[in-house]
Write a protein that binds this DNA or RNA. Structure first.
Length: 455
RNA sequence: GUGGAUGUAGUUCAGUUGGUUAGAACGCUGGAUUGUGGUUCCAGAGGUCGCCGGUUCAAAUCCGGUCUUCCACCCCA
């Protein structure tokens, strides 16, 4: 007895209607990327585990899918390691490949490996799926697509400005209302420095990040729990209570950070970005949010996060600047900045808000009813002609199938026109064209048919 | 990884304190209509009640395990 087929947890099949909508998102994003001069690359689904481990923090390592070695890997494994039953050590013995967790780290690897073939600053885009062994929920999958743009080999803040423009253009095209939240790791480092806890920066940022969600009191509790002295937590309070416009916030934070060189550098970077952005008439709101932390620990400068305004969903796009990602792979001092659009979450948001254009559902424009082999033979050259004109056309493949069945098929597939060619039409060299929406039909010539369908 | 909910026809869901042969709507197939779909009418097919085990004379219903989906935490696109 055949077992019920299924797919792994957190993965999905996509049917035709879903794919049409997904492609709409991919095409839109891709068109904007190209418009700004980015070039496409792809990298393998698998990377060497050594390239992936340690880049996403401790949590990230756990969420990596590891691929077993090929062959009789167990016989080669060290017995003492196996008997220890330590998962991490055993993994090292039996797995040396893993599925990519994001597109940024493979990109850094790519840049280092191909540095001599690339023209810097290198602007690339990459649209591929990534895998995370997370527990699935709404808007969280184990396999999902990221659409990344990065520019590497330039530390100009113009790139940050460009990324904001790209975000604006993409969401304007998709008709999704969003807010771009921005922060800077240097400011966060400065804060840690000023309160005398520079090595606690990760704990501090992770806790501050939750301000919206759990409130000030709980954040303070968590900070104390993580081993921060009370006086340091106290010093942090004015920062968490910042308010006003971006400029006002920066003004206040500058005061707090006046002792910290890094911190002031961060503030200055933000000021520059906002200054250059101002005359560009970007409609999307860009908000300085000092509670924005982002977990990925390779970020060193600007960090971005984009949230949909009209739907409840985690961040749908995120990124930032990384000063030394390529350093780990042997190419130091190359700065990059990029951002990643989460296609699956964007899809969920657009589905919720009903933002997909209706006509994307149509594929074939006209279907020829198949009355029999003789009629079929007459129709095929006509269909060829239509296709040469770029008109999507097809014929029902079963010669002489019941009319009702054929019409039903066209209707179910949302094909807007049906052509009927039987004895009468062949005799007079015409085609009876039926408009499925209006239900009207008329006899016309092939030339007229092309004209009507080309509209 | 921790805690909670969920699973019944292709789909969305009913199903009483455990009690004959598990239902509805929509969809599907055939017919009314042999050159006309979307409306209507008639008929029909379709279920190991997620999976495995246990309690019971008897389990969709109670218990345990497991998997899926969803929710919260963690983290994130």
């Amino acid at each position: 007895m055949a077992q019920k087929p299924s797919i792994p947890k957190g993965t999905r099949d996509f049917g035709p209607e879903t794919m049409v909508k997904r492609n709409y998102i991919f095409d839109t994003i891709k068109s904007v990327f190209k418009l700004y001069g980015y070039q496409p690359i792809e990298t393998p689904a698998m990377e060497n585990l050594s390239s992936l481990m340690g880049k996403y923090g401790e949590e990230g390592d756990k969420l990596l899918f590891k691929v077993l070695n090929s062959g009789d890997f167990m016989s080669k494994a060290d017995d003492t390691v196996l008997s220890e039953k330590n998962s991490i050590k055993v993994t090292n013995q039996i797995s040396e490949k893993g599925l990519r967790y994001d597109l940024t780290v493979p990109f850094a690897r790519f840049v280092v490996q191909h540095q001599n073939e690339l023209q810097f600053p290198f602007k690339r885009y990459q649209i591929q799926n990534v895998w995370r062994a997370d527990r699935p929920q709404k808007g969280r999958y184990r396999e999902f697509y990221q659409c990344d743009v990065d520019v590497i080999g330039s530390d100009s803040l113009l790139n940050e400005v460009e990324i904001i423009q790209i975000v604006n253009d993409v969401y304007k095209k998709l008709k999704v209302n969003v807010v771009v939240k921005m922060n800077n790791r240097k400011i966060l480092a400065g804060i840690a420095e000023v309160i005398g806890q520079p090595d606690k920066i990760i704990d501090i940022t992770v806790a501050i990040d939750k301000l919206d969600k759990i409130g000030l009191d709980k954040v303070n509790e968590e900070l104390v729990e993580k081993g921060l002295p009370q006086e340091a937590v106290d010093k942090l309070q004015p920062i968490m209570n910042l308010s006003g416009t971006n400029t006002e916030k920066l003004q206040q934070i500058k005061e707090v950070l006046k002792e910290s060189e890094v911190g002031l550098k961060g503030v200055q970077e933000m000021e520059t970005v906002f200054y250059w952005l101002a005359p560009l008439n970007v409609e999307t709101e860009v908000e300085l949010d000092l509670t924005l932390a982002r977990g990925l620990n390779y970020y060193t400068g600007a960090i971005f996060e984009v949230k949909a305004l009209d739907a409840q969903m985690g961040s749908i796009t995120g990124g930032g600047r990384y000063d030394d990602l390529t350093g780990i792979f042997g190419l130091p001092n190359v700065s990059g900045v990029g951002i990643s659009f989460g296609a699956d979450r964007i899809y969920d948001v657009m589905e919720q808000l009903n933002l997909f254009p209706k006509d994307t559902a149509t594929t074939t424009k006209i279907m020829f009813v198949n009355f029999g082999e003789k009629e079929q033979t007459w129709c095929l050259p006509v269909i060829n002609k239509l296709r040469q004109q770029g008109i999507a056309a097809e014929i029902y493949p079963q010669a002489g199938a019941k009319m009702k069945k054929q019409m039903n098929y066209a209707n179910a597939r949302n094909i807007p026109f049906v052509a009927l060619v039987g004895d009468n039409e062949i005799e007079s060299s015409t085609i009876t064209l039926k408009d499925m929406d209006k239900g009207e039909q008329k006899a016309i010539s092939v030339e007229e048919l092309i004209q009507i369908l080309n509209k």
